[in-house]
Design a binder for these strands. Structure first.
Length: 330
DNA sequence: ATGGTTTTTACTGCGTC
DNA sequence: GACGCGGTAAAAACCAT
């Protein structure tokens, strides 16, 4: 039976509910203040500016058909962290001036020179080329892990910070990029196990673990701990289990004694919970399958089964009031 | 480096299909 | 006999100090 206070877990930790999209990379806080005037989002806890220039990324015009779209478009795509120049680079075009007239002769030659200088000035081969490589690696890993673009963006921000602080010296871009994705995923409560990330990355697990550790030290990342429940969705979809199993697994974890689960690999806890929930609901998966999905061994799953509650916590009545109880007007 | 804890590896036995 | 499951012992990995 679950104890009375099982409803509110981790009393010492702030409940990560205020913002379900983001946690502050500095302090892990999840409460944010919007500074409209400056267009900034600021962590309410430590004051770190999380995003600035929070401009409306969409166009300021509307188009109702492709022709209007063509006519009204003035600017290129929106600002994005996923380009080495944030998508804001400028280019000097060919052939025509601002009035649409052809340019020739002296002016044309001048434009050519300007183009060359511009290119040389804006595209710094060293740093930017590496950023380009890192960003494409971040994007690749993120997608391979079925993580949303917001994770890639957080990872990209982290990577830039890492580079700005000289973290890259003597370290591989690939491992650092992967470490950023791993950390960013955890920040957004969409953790992936370390070895799952390593599988997709161009780095060994050891390499990734070491790099991640150093990275979080260097950037003072307050990465929130991984809750087993956060891993459930990923495993559930891997095994094609119904949502009811996932929900029951979540309640099984809730009903368990917390002391027995701390320090244990959260993936193993999630795996055991899904296994037991599946059994109880007649959607049996084998220990082998669930262990494979979670990246642990069957032995470990069995060990966790002993730590896990036998029966799920009480149904959260407030969440979905059962229609049967509702008074029926005749 | 060290020592405590957790996880993995390897192996065994039992029941079921 | 193959498979799933449960267990154990020892080695390996991990982590804080």
């Amino acid at each position: 039976m679950p104890d009375a206070e099982s409803g509110d877990r981790d009393p010492d930790q702030e409940p990560p509910v205020e913002s379900d999209e983001l946690a502050c990379p500095e302090c892990g806080g999840t409460r944010f203040q919007e500074d409209e005037r400056h267009g900034e989002t600021v962590c309410a806890n430590c004051g770190l500016v999380l995003s600035e220039g929070a401009i409306d990324q969409g166009p300021d015009w509307r188009a109702f058909d492709p022709q209007q779209r063509q006519e009204r478009a003035r600017a290129g795509p929106g600002r994005t962290i996923m380009r080495h120049d944030h998508g804001l680079g400028s280019q000097i075009g060919y052939g025509r001036d601002a009035h649409g007239k052809n340019v020739r002769g002296k002016t044309k030659a001048q434009l050519g020179r300007m183009r060359r200088y511009h290119r040389q000035a804006t595209y710094r081969p060293g740093a930017d080329r590496n950023v380009v490589r890192a960003l494409s690696e971040i994007e690749r890993i993120t997608h391979a892990l079925n993580l949303p673009d917001t994770v890639a963006e957080t990872a990209a921000t982290m990577y830039r910070r890492a580079q700005a602080e000289g973290f890259l010296h003597g370290r591989s871009i690939e491992a650092t990029a992967a470490a950023c994705v791993y950390a960013a995923a955890r920040f957004q409560q969409l953790p992936r196990p370390l070895d799952t990330v390593a599988d997709q990355a161009q780095a060994s697990k050891d390499d990734l673990a070491r790099t991640y550790r150093r990275l979080s030290e260097k950037l003072q990342l307050a990465v929130p701990i991984t809750y087993p429940a956060d891993l459930l969705p990923s495993f559930t979809s891997k095994l094609d289990l119904p949502a009811t199993v996932q929900e029951r697994a979540r309640r099984l974890i809730e009903a368990s004694e917390e002391e027995r689960l701390v320090g244990k690999n959260p993936a193993s806890v999630a795996a055991a919970a899904l296994y037991r929930a599946g059994q109880q609901l007649g959607h049996g998966v084998t220990q082998k399958e669930i262990a494979g999905a979670a990246g642990v061994t069957e032995v470990t799953v069995r060990a966790r089964l002993k730590d896990l509650a036998e029966e799920p916590a009480d149904e959260d009545a407030s969440k979905d009031p059962t229609p049967d109880d509702a008074p029926v007007a005749v």
